[in-house]
Design a protein around this nucleic acid. Structure first.
Length: 281
DNA sequence: CGCGCCTCCTGTGTGC
DNA sequence: TGCACACAGGAGGCGC
């Protein structure tokens, strides 16, 4: 599922294939894909027409394409969204929702999304940070990320550490997969209370978060099926390097104890019951 | 206001 | 064989 490494891989593809090109046509096939643009699909298309894409930027799991008008195309991939660069004569994908043509007549940009949790919208101020995502915290690979402020904020919270890692207003870019991986590396159970974690423990956890995100980015992200791909339709291969996520009943790479899967927040958590001791309670 | 639960959505896999 | 249901989960919204 697209978390920071996957979205960053897509951003890099957009920077390479889309930046500098001028939009000549916009087709919205599925209005749900632009539902966050309250003025509607037609207004969305009109604002893009004739504009040149000037950059490809990202914060956490959001990415946006600033335009020469000062607007930006804001994008969230949700669970299954894809930004694909495709030749104009390529057959329509089954869940093709938005198609963008360019004046050079070259590859189209296509937004494809099976589960429709993702979408595009138009931000009226995209040069710095779209106001729609001002509540999203900096992500841990952002040079402006403040480690000490994060450590303090984490320890102020009254919640469980995995919930905190998934809280995009505290630290962005982490989803269920990399939360489990970072917790496994830090030997912390996801249900540990944030306000009882020591400062060094939170710093160590943050280090593991950065490590796993960087390693996954190197591998082009994690793909379990064809739902996450880069702009050229290729899967990442970090799934081979996962130690906890999706590995229920397989031996822990550190101690051999079978990895446990349990329900958490209407989804699943995977952890080693020996390396990651569950807190008393 | 902070925290946590619910809901949106569709394809795949499983069990009866 | 076919149907019903669980599961995958990011994030906004709402209730407590």
């Amino acid at each position: 599922m697209p978390e920071l490494p996957e979205v960053e891989t897509v951003r890099e593809g957009l920077a390479r294939w889309v930046v500098g090109r001028t939009i000549s046509a916009v087709g919205v096939a599925h209005p749900r894909a632009v539902r966050r643009h309250v003025a509607g699909a037609e207004d969305f298309a009109d604002a893009l027409l004739g504009r040149t894409v000037t950059d490809a930027l990202r914060r956490g799991k959001y990415l946006w394409l600033p335009l020469d008008s000062g607007d930006a195309i804001l994008c969230h991939l949700g669970m299954s969204g894809q930004m694909l660069v495709q030749p104009p004569d390529a057959p329509d994908e089954k869940h093709l929702h938005v198609r963008i043509d360019f004046t050079d007549g070259g590859e189209q940009l296509r937004f494809v999304d099976q589960r429709t949790f993702g979408g595009l919208s138009l931000s009226r101020d995209g040069a710095e940070l779209p106001p729609e995502i001002a509540h999203i915290a900096r992500d841990p690979v952002d040079p402006g990320f403040d480690d000490e402020a994060f450590v303090a904020a984490m320890r102020r919270k009254k919640t469980e550490v995995k919930r905190a890692l998934l809280d995009q207003t505290l630290i962005s870019g982490i989803g269920n997969i990399y939360a489990d991986e970072a917790l496994w590396r830090a030997k912390l159970h996801g249900r540990r209370a944030t306000n009882k974690l020591t400062r060094p423990l939170v710093r160590t956890l943050l280090g593991h978060v950065r490590d796993v995100l960087a390693e996954a980015l190197k591998a082009g992200g994690t793909s379990f099926d064809a739902l996450y791909v880069n702009v050229n339709g290729q899967s990442g291969y970090f799934d081979r390097s996962l130690n906890a996520y999706g590995r229920a009943d397989e031996p822990c790479a550190r101690c051999g104890t079978p990895i446990v899967r349990e329900a958490f927040m209407n989804r699943s958590s995977y952890f080693c019951p020996r390396c990651q001791r569950r807190p008393a309670s």
